[in-house]
C-alpha cells in the first residue's frame, strides 16, 4: 500500500438505520490532495462525511485510516489523524480566537489541558498559515463569517492531522470569502501535504480548485475523478440532471434557461466580449449556430450585425436584434408562462 494513501474505504454503504443512502463505495484520499464532494441536496453528502470521520457508523463495509479500521481506532488516536470543520456556527462568545485554536491541541494535552511551548508553537503555526494571527485576541462574535471559518480551519490545522474533513464550510459565506477559503484550502493541501476533503455546493469553485471530485447523485450513484474528466464524460450532467438544469459542457456552467428555441444567429469573435455576448444572446433565446443566415461580429470597438449595423453596447445589440426579428415579444410570453 502506498504511504500516500491516508484514507480508503472498502464496500462502504452509508445511511441511517435500514435506509441505505449510498454504496457500496470505494474511495481514496491521498496526501496533498484537495477533494471536493458534490451532489444535489439530500444526496447524502453529510452522511458520507460523518461516516468517514467516525461520527456515524457505516451500514456495511469499512473505512480505513492508513491500515487501521475506523471503529477500532481509539478516540484520541483518531483525533490525531483526522480533524473536522462543520457547517454549524460555533457560538462560544467568551472564547478568544487564540483559545479556540488552542482547543485543537486537546488530543495532545494533559488531563487539565495545559499547553506546552510545543503546543503554543503549533497554534501560532496554524494561525499564520490561515492568516489569522491578527485575530488572536478577538472573540468569536467580533468575526465575520468568512473570518470565523478561517479560524475554525486554523483550529483543525492546530489539531495536526493528516486528514481534514470540511462539511460545507462555504455555506454561510459571501462570494469573496468562498473564493478565498477555497484558494486557501488548495494551497494548504499543496504546502502541508495533508489530504483535504470538503463537501460543497460551489460547483464552479470546486471545478477550479479540486484535484479530484466525488459526485454523489440523488439516487446514491457515485462517480469520482479529475474534474475535467467528469465534465467531458457527462458525469456532471448525469449527477445534477434531477435538478432540472442543463450543464453546459462548453462553458462549465449551469444553464438557467431551457435550450434556446429562438432565431438562429451566427456569432464571431474571440475576446471576453464574445463570451458575454454569447451569454446575453442565450438568455434571450437565440440559438448560436455557425451556419445561421444572420450573424453578429464582436470586435474591440463594438458589435456589427450582418456587417452593416454597428452598436456599442449589448443593450443596443439586443434592442436592434429584437426589432429585426420581432422576437422579443415571443420571449416575453415565454417569461410570463414560466412565472
Amino acid at each position: 500500500m502506498s504511504a500516500n494513501l491516508l484514507l480508503h474505504t472498502r464496500h462502504l454503504s452509508i445511511g441511517y438505520g435500514n435506509h441505505r443512502v449510498a454504496g457500496p463505495l470505494s474511495v481514496q484520499l491521498k496526501a496533498g490532495q484537495l477533494v471536493c464532494l458534490l451532489g444535489p441536496n439530500g444526496a447524502g453528502k453529510s452522511t458520507l462525511m460523518r461516516t468517514l470521520s467516525g461520527l456515524q457508523n457505516a451500514l456495511e463495509g469499512d473505512v480505513y485510516l492508513g491500515d487501521k479500521r475506523l471503529p477500532h481506532i481509539p478516540p484520541t488516536e483518531l483525533a490525531k489523524k483526522l480533524s473536522l470543520v462543520l457547517t454549524e456556527r460555533v457560538e462560544a462568545g467568551h472564547l478568544t480566537v487564540g483559545e479556540l485554536v488552542a482547543l485543537g491541541r486537546t488530543p495532545y494535552t494533559n488531563w487539565l489541558g495545559s499547553l506546552t511551548s510545543a503546543d503554543q508553537e503549533r497554534v501560532q503555526w496554524a494561525l499564520a498559515l490561515t492568516g489569522t494571527q491578527s485575530f488572536i485576541n478577538r472573540r468569536l462574535p467580533q468575526l465575520s463569517d468568512g473570518e470565523r471559518q478561517k479560524v475554525m480551519l486554523a483550529r483543525a490545522l492546530a489539531q495536526d492531522t493528516d486528514l481534514i474533513l470540511l462539511d460545507e464550510p462555504t455555506a454561510h459565506l459571501d462570494l469573496p470569502s468562498r473564493v478565498e477559503l477555497m484558494r486557501l484550502l488548495h494551497e494548504l493541501a499543496r504546502q502541508t501535504r495533508k489530504a483535504i476533503l470538503l463537501s460543497t455546493h460551489e460547483l464552479d469553485l470546486a471545478l477550479q480548485a479540486a484535484d479530484e471530485l466525488w459526485l454523489l447523485g440523488a439516487k446514491g450513484e457515485f462517480e469520482h475523478g479529475v474534474p475535467e474528466d467528469l465534465v467531458l464524460n457527462g458525469s456532471f450532467e448525469r449527477t445534477f440532471a434531477a435538478s432540472g438544469f442543463a450543464f453546459d459542457r462548453t462553458t462549465g456552467t449551469f444553464q438557467m434557461y431551457p435550450a434556446p428555441t429562438g432565431p438562429a444567429l451566427g456569432l464571431q469573435g474571440n475576446s471576453a466580449a464574445y463570451f458575454w455576448t454569447r451569454r446575453a444572446l442565450s438568455r434571450e433565446g437565440y440559438q448560436i449556430q455557425a451556419s445561421a443566415r444572420h450573424s453578429v461580429q464582436v470586435t474591440d470597438e463594438g458589435w456589427f450585425i450582418d456587417e452593416q449595423t454597428f452598436v456599442t453596447s449589448i443593450h443596443d445589440l439586443l434592442q436592434e436584434l429584437s426589432n429585426r426579428y420581432s422576437y422579443r415579444t415571443d420571449n416575453e410570453d415565454l417569461h410570463k408562462k414560466r412565472r
Binding site: P75, K80, L82, L84, E88, V90, A92, T106, P107
Partner: peptide, 15 residues
C-alpha cells in the same frame, strides 16, 4: 472546554 464547540467537535478532538 471541548464541549463548548458542541458534541461533534468534542468527539472529533478525541473526547
Amino acid at each position: 472546554n471541548s464541549l463548548l464547540l458542541g458534541e461533534a467537535y468534542a468527539r472529533s478532538m478525541g473526547l
